[in-house]
Write a protein that binds this DNA or RNA. Structure first.
Lengths: 136, 136
DNA sequence: CCGAATCCGGTTGGATACTG
DNA sequence: CAGTATCCAACCGGATTCGG
């Protein structure tokens, strides 16, 4: 397991990482990638339709995110040169295969979130009540 | 699936998110959390030992990361008040349970990374060869 | 040994305006 | 419709310094 996560540089600075999990997390972990992938899961969508569904994403971020995802082969971009040009985005096979482990993670998150929320609240309250941290 | 990922605000600004998956990704997706969790998986470690293993993490980031993880109940912090105080960090049961879906994701990443790498390289080269993007 | 606090540069990402 | 370009604020994270 030490071989999998080894010697990462910080977030995107030195991306000379041979670490696959950090690689995928750097892509997936950013603010919008996962959200976009999930929105695309039911079926292909055009740019503005996608924008409407995600709805508080800026058009810049959607654009950037889509290019990243396309670069990694997770989504495909198809241009139909009609009157107003039409562009459709869709999950590739790779993108769909990613949804499986991500789904597992989502399930974990859903299941454990209540606990985490409570733990977090308790932690915060404890810290608030005695600002003189008795930790050391 | 639309209920799971809904209406996220940007990264950490408005964390009024009821979205569990984004919640967990915000924790896991940052530069050091996962790396720390993996390093802690074999067994409990003290602060500086942990620091040595992760080795290019700054002490500040290790400190911050550990506090976040403790807040969420993923790691525990145990202080033994000996001569020089001794502090041990360990995965909680929750932390260990997280390693399962994360492991699946890591496996996916390992398996698909060669493909992604090639796809990425091809994409970059194509973009480099004709800077006049024929996209629209 | 185990941290917390401060300073500060680089990056992320939103708003806006413009192109085709 | 489908983006790109520019400007700018907020944030992340490294280096350093100080305390228990």
């Amino acid at each position: 397991m030490d071989a999998v996560v080894s010697r990462i540089s910080s977030r995107r600075r030195l991306h000379a990482h041979a670490c696959p999990i950090r690689d995928v997390l750097d892509r997936i972990g950013d603010a919008w990638s996962l959200l976009t992938l999930f929105t695309l899961e039911p079926g292909p969508l055009r740019f503005n339709e996608l924008r409407r569904r995600v709805d508080d994403i800026s058009q810049r971020m959607l654009s950037v995110t889509l290019r990243q995802l396309e670069r990694d082969g997770l989504v495909s971009r198809t241009v139909t040169p009609t009157k107003p040009p039409q562009v459709e985005y869709a999950l590739t096979e790779l993108g769909q295969s990613l949804m499986v482990p991500v789904g597992a993670l989502a399930a974990w998150a859903s299941a454990k979130q209540p606990f985490i929320q409570r733990h977090r609240a308790a932690y915060d309250q404890a810290a608030e009540e005695n600002p003189d941290d008795p930790s050391l």
